[in-house]
Computed example of a mutant assay.
Amino acid sequence: MLKITPYLGIFVVIVSIVGLWYPILGYMMPLVILILMVTSVSKGRWFCGNLCPRGSFIDFWVGKATLKKKIPGFLKSFWIRIPVFLMLMGFMTYRIINVINTQGIINQIGMIFVVMCLVTTAIALVLGVGISPRTWCTFCPMGTAQNLIGGKKYQLKVIDSKCIDCNKCEKVCPMQLDVHTGELKPDCIKCERCVDVCPTKALEFKA
């Protein structure tokens, strides 16, 4: 992960709380969406593990109070993820259409983004404490979009001749993936914690 990653969580707090008084802060959300969509083309979910403010918040803030349970497998299913994506995107689009041609449209649209950020962060917080920090990330609409756009890019590679099956990589994986199996991992967030903890340097990322 990047050196700034642990500190980015403050932005989601600012948008979710301060944004209620200053809706213009809500426009950070579409900026974030734009950046993650651009990076997903070549690096999949790299943004999630390195630049996502909510990811930083739940990893380094919520992670201190989590029960650290196994993330339910059904939450990773596209039967859950696609409906959640369509529901949230549809609701946001509907609300924006309703405020077009009204007074104070800039602030009204900003508030829509703020409320979306607040609601999704609240869900992430509850799931993060009650199950595991990255539970929300398993079915996050933006994470799902990145998975579909570039999930096969910048994959984690396992050097079998060096792997000693110590499972240290899987213990530190925030997404609870089967790290050292060598299978395609479109939901890997490229945080590189597995790479850092591997005692034999058997893991590396390649485009």
Rank of each mutant, 00 (worst) to 15 (best):
G104E: 07
V197D: 10
K153T: 14
P30C: 02
V126Y: 06
I189Q: 14
P53T: 14
M29F: 10
V119C: 11
C198K: 13
P30E: 04
P199R: 14
T181H: 04
V13A: 11
G9D: 10
F74H: 12
V15E: 07
I58Y: 11
L88C: 10
R193P: 00
A122G: 01
P174H: 13
G19L: 05
N50K: 12
L25V: 08
V197A: 12
S77V: 13
G151P: 06
I105R: 06
W61M: 05
L34A: 13
K43A: 15
T144Y: 02
L51W: 13
V179P: 10
N50W: 01
T102V: 05
M111Y: 09
E183M: 08
L148W: 08
P30I: 03
T200N: 11
L31P: 04
R45M: 02
R54A: 01
S132C: 06
T121A: 14
Q146I: 01
I96R: 09
C198N: 07
G130F: 00
C48I: 02
L177I: 11
V119D: 05
C169E: 15
I17H: 12
N50L: 04
F74Q: 12
K162P: 01
K206Y: 11
V62Q: 05
C198F: 09
E170I: 00
N107M: 14
I97G: 04
G182N: 03
D187P: 04
P53W: 13
P53D: 07
T102D: 08
R95S: 03
V38R: 05
F60K: 07
R193F: 04
P30L: 06
G128Y: 10
R95F: 00
G104Q: 09
L156E: 06
F91W: 04
D160M: 09
M28I: 09
Y22A: 02
I82T: 11
I112P: 02
L127Y: 02
I159W: 00
M142I: 01
I189H: 14
S16Q: 13
M37I: 14
C166E: 14
R95P: 00
T93L: 01
E170A: 14
I159F: 12
K201I: 00
K64E: 03
N147P: 00
R45S: 01
M1Y: 05
C198I: 02
S56G: 06
F113M: 08
V62C: 02
A207M: 14
L36A: 08
K206M: 09
T93G: 03
R45L: 00
S132K: 15
F113Y: 13
Y22G: 03
M92D: 01
C52M: 03
F85R: 06
N101D: 08
S161R: 14
I96V: 13
G19N: 05
G73N: 11
W79F: 08
V126R: 09
R45Q: 10
Y154E: 09
V114F: 08
N50M: 03
F57G: 03
N167R: 15
L36F: 06
P53E: 10
I164Q: 15
V41E: 02
N101R: 13
M89E: 05
N98Y: 00
D165A: 15
